[in-house]
C-alpha cells in the first residue's frame, strides 16, 4: 500500500486519516488475528492435525456445517418469497413487517437464544404442542437449525430486495409477449437475473450461521458428539484452559469463514461483470 496519493490532490488530511486508519486497523484487528495464526503455527503440524481431527471436534464440524447449510437453504427459499412479497405486493402491515426483518440483526443473540428456547422447550409455547407428536426441537439439531434460520434470515431478504426492485418490468413483459407463461418468465428471466443476489445472500447466511454462538447455546443442549457446535467447543476448551485446543479449532473455523468471504466477494464481482465480455 502506498502512503502517497497517486494523483496530486489539494484536499488536506490524507496522511493523518490514512495513518490513523492503518494504525487502528493494525492494533484492533490485524495484530490480534495474527496472534491466533502464530499461536496455531507454534503447535506444529502433527499436534494441530491431531486436535482438529478428534472425533468430538469432527462431530461438531458436521453438526455446525450441516445445520448451517440447511438453515441457509431454508432461508434462501423463504427469504426469496419474503423479498418478492415485500417488493412486489401491497398489503396491510407491510411497512412494519419490512422493518421487522432486521430484528435478528438488532436483537442481542443471547436474547434470541433464550426466547427460542422458551418457545421450543418441551413445555414451551410451541414445544408443548410438538412434544405429543414426537417432535423434539429444543436440545436437538432441529433446534440449532431453527436458531440459525433466525439469525440468517435478514441476509437473504436484504440482499434480494434491491435486486428484485431493480428488475425491469419490460423484461417480464417481453417474455409474456413472446408467449412465456408466468412460470417460464420466472424461471428463465427473473431467476437468472437475481441469481447472484440469491447466492450472495445464501453464502452470507451460511457464513453467519457457521460462527453463531449466542442464539444457539441455549437451545442446543450442548451434548458432546450430539448437539455441540464448534463455537461452543472452542469456549469449552478455553474454560478448561486448553489454549492450544481452542486455538487450533478456531483456526479451522476462521479459514472456513475466509473462504466464504472470498466466495461472497467473487459472487459480487461476478454479478457486476457477467455478460460483459470483450466487445
Amino acid at each position: 500500500m502506498s502512503l502517497v496519493a497517486r494523483k496530486r490532490n489539494v484536499l488536506p488530511g490524507f496522511g493523518p486519516t490514512l495513518g490513523f486508519t492503518l494504525f487502528y486497523l493494525g492494533v484492533i484487528v490485524l495484530l490480534p488475528l495474527s496472534a491466533l495464526f502464530l499461536k496455531s503455527a507454534g503447535l506444529g503440524w502433527s499436534q494441530f492435525w491431531k486436535i482438529v481431527t478428534e472425533p468430538r471436534v469432527v462431530a461438531s464440524y458436521k453438526l455446525t456445517f450441516g445445520a448451517s447449510l440447511i438453515a441457509a437453504l431454508i432461508n434462501a427459499v423463504f427469504g426469496l418469497m419474503v423479498a418478492w412479497t415485500l417488493v412486489r405486493y401491497r398489503f396491510p402491515g407491510k411497512k412494519v413487517i419490512d422493518a421487522l426483518v432486521d430484528l435478528p440483526f438488532a436483537l442481542p443473540t443471547a436474547v434470541s437464544g433464550i426466547a427460542l428456547t422458551a418457545i421450543y422447550a418441551p413445555n414451551g409455547w410451541i414445544g408443548q404442542y410438538l412434544e405429543p407428536l414426537g417432535i423434539k426441537v429444543a436440545f436437538t439439531p432441529l433446534g440449532i437449525t431453527i436458531a440459525l434460520i433466525f439469525v440468517g434470515l435478514p441476509f437473504v431478504v436484504r440482499t434480494l430486495q434491491p435486486a428484485i426492485a431493480e428488475l425491469e418490468k419490460e423484461h417480464e413483459e417481453a417474455a409474456a409477449s413472446l408467449g412465456a407463461t408466468r412460470f417460464h418468465a420466472f424461471t428463465r428471466v427473473i431467476l437468472p437475473a437475481i441469481l447472484p443476489a440469491l447466492l450472495t445472500g445464501f453464502a452470507m447466511a451460511f457464513a453467519r450461521a457457521l460462527g453463531e454462538y449466542g442464539s444457539v447455546v441455549f437451545i442446543a443442549g450442548n451434548m458432546p458428539m450430539k448437539t455441540e457446535i464448534t463455537s461452543l467447543l472452542i469456549v469449552t476448551k478455553l474454560e478448561q484452559y486448553d489454549y492450544p485446543g481452542a486455538t487450533a479449532i478456531a483456526t479451522v473455523m476462521l479459514m472456513a469463514s475466509f473462504v466464504l468471504l472470498l466466495t461472497i466477494n467473487m459472487l459480487q464481482y461476478w454479478a457486476g461483470h457477467r455478460h460483459q465480455g470483450v466487445a
Partner: peptide, 10 residues
C-alpha cells in the same frame, strides 16, 4: 467474517 467466539479468543 470472524465469529464472535473467535473475536474474544484472539
Amino acid at each position: 467474517a470472524v465469529s464472535p467466539v473467535i473475536s474474544g479468543l484472539i
